[in-house]
Amino acid sequence: MASPIEQFNIKPIAHFELAGIDVSFTNSSLWMVIVVALLSLFLIGGTRKSASVPGRWQVMVELMYSFIAGMIRDNVGKEGKQYFPFIFTLFVFVLGLNLAGMVPYAFTVTSHIAVNFAMAAFIFIGVTLVGFAKNGAGYLKLFAPSGVPMWLLPMIVLIELISYCTRPISLSVRLFANMLAGHIMMKVFAGFILSLAAAGAVGMVGAVLPFTVNVLLTGLEILVACLQAYVFTILTCIYLNDAMHPAH
């Protein structure tokens, strides 16, 4: 029986090396390319006609657009609109990767912390730069809450700074852990089916149980895939809001 974590192995497809660093095109990169291609097809295809009375395809794309536009308006405000392209790309990319992981034999790119942390670190640095660009040195007030006595201030600033630095970790670990745990669980229950079925007639009847669980898990995992993409995006919006209006 295959090990439940074997599905997360990175396998190089085409080997490249750049200045001594392994930059091979792997199965992870392959699935990113596939997802980006499918998303482009979906979004460009849906907006191709741009009819005032939209067809089904166009409605799907428009729903996605208004969902993210609404999220930005509610969480960041009107000024957040300029970041719409980034937030929208982030959402559809993470959602696409999560959902692509549900396809049998597919590779779940977001189950690797390296990928998620790269995205989270990019968001973290970007949001910090936006904060300084919009507020100048006033952004530092985020680290010094008002009403703190002078002698306590250095420690509070340090604590707030560490707390600020936990953001990319909290952001990436949540997506990574959810995807990893879900896919391991599905694989483990699939393993139960096989080993029970191999144990004779009684086992075959018993194998119905883990099979039922796996069917339910598949539904749950699709929900988790969408929910975690949503959480990732909305947290980015919340951080962005902190950067634009650092009042607290």
Binding site: G70, R73, D74, N75, I162, S163, I169, S170, L227, V231
Partner: peptide, 27 residues
Amino acid sequence: PEAKEPDSASNVAFRMGVDLVAGTGVG
């Protein structure tokens, strides 16, 4: 409109755990 993070109990519990460990880890 005021959208928040979806806060099911398990989501909140998980987030608390990650936040706690992440703080110590970053330190």
